[in-house]
Structures are given as C-alpha cells and as structure tokens.
C-alpha cells in the first residue's frame, strides 16, 4: 500500500477516569504498523496523560504511562502538547514524562518526542492533517 496519509490523534481526556486515553494509545500502537505519517496532539485534559510519576497500585488499574515511552520505537515521534492547556493546568514540560526517540538516520541521536506548541502553531499542524481520530 503506497498511500501515506497524515493521521492525527487528538487526546483531550485524562487517563484512568475514562478509558479513552488507554484505548487511543492502543490505536496508535496498531496504527504504527501501517507506516503512515502519525502525529499525536495533547489538548485540554489530554496533557494529564503525559504526567510523570503515575502510580496506579492504589486504584487497581493498569498503569499504561510507560507505553508512551515505547512510542519512539514504533516511529511515533511527534507528540505535540498545547502550551495553553499546560499553562491553564499549572504545568510545565518538566511535569511531563521525558519521552525520547532515536534517529537511525543520524547515528541514533536521541531526540525529544514531546514538543510544546502554542494553539496557533497547533492549529496550523491540525489543518494539514488527512485523518483526524479524536478520543
């Protein structure tokens, strides 16, 4: 299949309270095998998905936050976090997990997967997408 489309995953919901974050991640992982151009956006409460130090032992649910760290290995390397959403929640990028991907074309140099962008920048990125999957 030669068609490469721009897939855009919109994450606007916090983890654990509802299942959307987890099942969205499952789509991203399966979708990675199709070698499309994948971008993830974290907007509104979606930014909470990327919080450091998640520990779910006390609620009896699976902690799926380590899965975000594996995304780089699936060539999912563009995770855009909306600056306005972060700031509205009193967060900075230091509150988020340190997600990296290795560039095989650049001697496996480590790059940051998370990029904090303004809503205007994110609006530009979003407007270029072919398929928008919102959760």
């Amino acid at each position: 299949m030669s068609t490469i489309k721009k897939f855009f995953y919109v994450n606007r919901k916090a983890p654990y309270g509802t299942v959307y974050a987890l099942e969205s991640l499952e789509v991203v992982l399966i979708g990675a095998a199709f070698e499309q151009d994948v971008t993830l956006a974290f907007i509104d409460d979606g930014v909470y998905q990327l919080m450091k130090n998640q520990s779910t032992a006390g609620i009896g649910m699976k902690n799926f936050s380590p899965t975000y760290k594996a995304l780089g290995d699936y060539d999912v390397t563009k995770l855009y976090v909306e600056k306005e959403s972060l700031e509205a929640r009193g967060l900075t990028i230091d509150d988020l997990m340190d997600l990296k991907w290795e560039d095989e074309d650049d001697d496996w140099a480590e790059n940051d997967s998370i990029r904090v962008v303004t809503s205007a920048e994110l609006a530009d990125i979003m407007s270029e997408q072919d398929v928008v999957l919102s959760f």
């Binding site: 606007r12 907007i43 306005e84 809503s119 609006a123 979003m126 407007s127």
Partner: peptide, 25 residues
Amino acid sequence: MAMLHTVNKSSFDRNTFESCLRLAK
C-alpha cells in the same frame, strides 16, 4: 486546507466548544 469542526457538547457543560474555537483556523 479547510477543515470542518463538529462540536457535540453544550458549552455550558464542557470546554469542548471553547477549545474548538481556540484551535480552528
């Protein structure tokens, strides 16, 4: 590219509509 945005939440209940307006080009 022009995008169609749909909003299905009351703006008095959730911030969905507000976010749409912030990010619609």
